[in-house]
Write a protein that binds this DNA or RNA. Structure first.
Lengths: 129, 129
DNA sequence: CTTTACTCTACCCTGAGGGGAAAGTATATA
DNA sequence: TATATACTTTCCCCTCAGGGTAGAGTAAAG
């Protein structure tokens, strides 16, 4: 099938699918005379796989790794779990940073009257040495 | 003072300070004969202000807005609080997304034995239609 | 045969700078 | 004074994961 159908079936944009072909992530055959990319069902399955992994916040490089594990029938579940646990700990540290940030900002906001006077503890904090 | 000292005092890199000059965020005078940027204490204060705001996850555009409020002695605290509350709600929605993601991933990981066998619920989930 | 739909490559754009080259300027030392 | 070292300048390419558009070619439908 052509790229439009492959994109539709995998719920990705054509741009994204073409990008994955260019970086060698999912590289379909190209029709010699027309130059059109021709996707197989298996390649569409890989595109779907990548789409899901991307939603789980895996980077393209991590997707590449997961994809090669997915294709390797002899891989161990240990390898996959390791990548997943690393991703979870990345998410945890981002969560902590964001929580700290939220606390500081909401502390500032709660101290600010938010009225028509110029006095503003938020700007005061940002101006502090 | 020159850019090196300004960068040091504001805890920013020279690249960053130069970038802020280029985009017109903090634009110092430039010595005509040498071409060197010459920073005043007030400009360094602005750089510090921006550095803090950036740590609070404000974008460059938001910093620009905050900076103009900071410079406007007639601004109301209402305006500043509004921006801050918007930022907090942005952070909240990012927090929710990340929490959902974490839950799904940790559910997958907990169902994966992580042993030397190829069977892996994580890849199964990613391959699902 | 023409219109419409689809696809191709090639180029520039995003945010917030980082890295490095080549050249000019300022300061410290011999 | 000459040189060595430190500092600064502009310019260009790079990041990440594609998005947008242009111009041209191809396929399918009427």
């Amino acid at each position: 099938m052509n790229i439009g159908k492959a994109a539709k079936l995998s719920n990705l944009t054509i741009k994204t699918v073409r990008y994955y072909a260019n970086i060698g992530l999912v590289k379909p055959e190209q029709n010699i005379s027309s130059g059109y990319r021709e996707y197989t069902d298996e390649e569409v399955a890989k595109l779907k796989f990548i789409g899901k992994a991307r939603k789980f916040d895996f980077s393209i490089d991590e997707c590449k790794e997961l994809l090669s594990l997915y294709e390797d029938k002899n891989r161990t579940s240990k390898e996959v779990k390791k990548i997943t646990l690393e991703k979870i700990s990345q998410i945890d540290s981002k969560l902590n940073d964001l929580k700290d940030l939220r606390n500081e900002l909401s502390f500032l906001a709660s101290n600010c009257h938010g009225d028509d006077k110029p006095n503003c503890p938020i700007l005061d904090e940002l101006s502090k040495n």
